[in-house]
Design a protein around this nucleic acid. Structure first.
Lengths: 206, 206
DNA sequence: CATTAAACAGACCAAACAGTCTGTAATATG
DNA sequence: CATATTACAGACTGTTTGGTCTGTTTAATG
């Protein structure tokens, strides 16, 4: 693939993501994407052999960017602090800043979107979404485990449960954010979750 | 509308709900619904003047049943206890039983589904979804306020925040439940949320 | 600079789609 | 029992859909 081709493909993916986030995948036609991006039908089917192929590549492309973003925020938090609880809190507040970006607040989560339409997708793709969500969760499990090991929680709790709760809280926040058209909802959920953590790990707070 | 007609309409709504929950609204064709329910095209368009009309009526029908279910569980909890914290905990555990029903565990939330496809729907319908979510939240706000008034929380917290967090946690749990095909995820989120409440209102726990 | 392959453009197609229309069976009502 | 209305049945239609195909332009490569 030539650099020019890669650029065109990126344009299609970007436009498709924007449309899919508003209308769902089944609700977005190939012609919609062509109109949005100005790309021709020939060009589209040169880069994607079918709409199902777009579904696959779009998700993989999205997940790649998404996971990369999380790793970046986490790496920064880990570099800034020694104590895992400090790292975690730093991560969460940085994540809240990202969520509240006035330029482009996240419009939703593509994992959730695919999950609510999953009958159309191949098992392969459904598996990929589940694995990606799990690897996202796994990042948090590791960190929560470090926190638990260092600072005994006041109530028995597992790292897995906390990690899953955080993911759920964010996913739920994004839904409320869309439904209410209130871009601050998701960050608020993260804040409230921090409150829970501070209660669970009181001795870890400065 | 004759009783027979009402029955047919109910059959269409039930079948449409099942399909929409699996494939999304845009991803479900009228012909799909006809095949699923055995209803004829003539009958369908006798009861619904368009697919958009189905979107409206389906959501209103769903919301009616949904809110009714919540009110029932809440009323039972309120009848069983005097203390608002006891009522709340009873409500949550009863709700968890409902979520874990081995017969038909909830496959998802239609508010979330519509929210992730909202570009297709009329403003009217989008508004209705937002209002319904808010009236659902409002139920919890009232109860949390009673708890806060009776049992001072160990950290400052608003009833609104707690209510929104609970809704987010459930919505997020349903997404994980679908993605992982694990029907227990949502109830676990509710459990974990209870843990938070018990930390927040320690003196309210027997 | 010739050749080959990638990148596109857009007319075209069959299937799926939402919705219509005409006719018929069931049911309520005076 | 006559009549009107509701409830359906299903063939049909115009449009949208995902996808193909043929031809042309652009760019890499020996």
């Amino acid at each position: 693939m030539t650099p020019k081709g890669a650029l065109a493909k990126e344009k299609i993916l970007t436009g498709a993501k924007a449309l899919v986030m508003r209308k769902g995948f089944a609700g977005t036609s190939v012609d919609d994407i062509l109109a949005e991006t100005g790309v021709s039908k020939g060009a589209f089917f040169h880069h994607f052999k079918s709409k199902a192929d777009l579904a696959n590549q779009l998700m993989r492309w999205y997940a790649d960017g998404d996971i990369r973003m999380f790793r970046t925020i986490l790496a920064r938090a880990e570099a800034a602090h020694d104590d895992p609880m400090d790292q975690l809190m730093q991560f969460l507040t940085d994540f809240e800043v990202y969520l509240s970006d006035p330029e482009n607040p996240p419009k939703g989560c593509m994992y959730a979107l695919y999950t609510y339409e999953d009958d159309h997708f191949e098992n392969d793709l459904k598996g990929f979404v589940a694995e990606t969500l799990q690897s996202w969760t796994a990042m948090y499990i590791r960190k929560f485990q470090e926190v638990i090991d260092r600072h005994p929680p006041v109530r028995p709790v597992t790292a897995k449960r906390l990690a899953e709760m955080f993911v759920a809280v964010i996913e739920g926040g994004l839904i409320l954010q869309r439904a209410y058209r209130n871009p601050g909802m998701t960050a608020r959920q993260s804040e409230q979750f921090r409150d829970y953590l501070e209660l669970l790990f009181p001795r870890a707070i400065a």
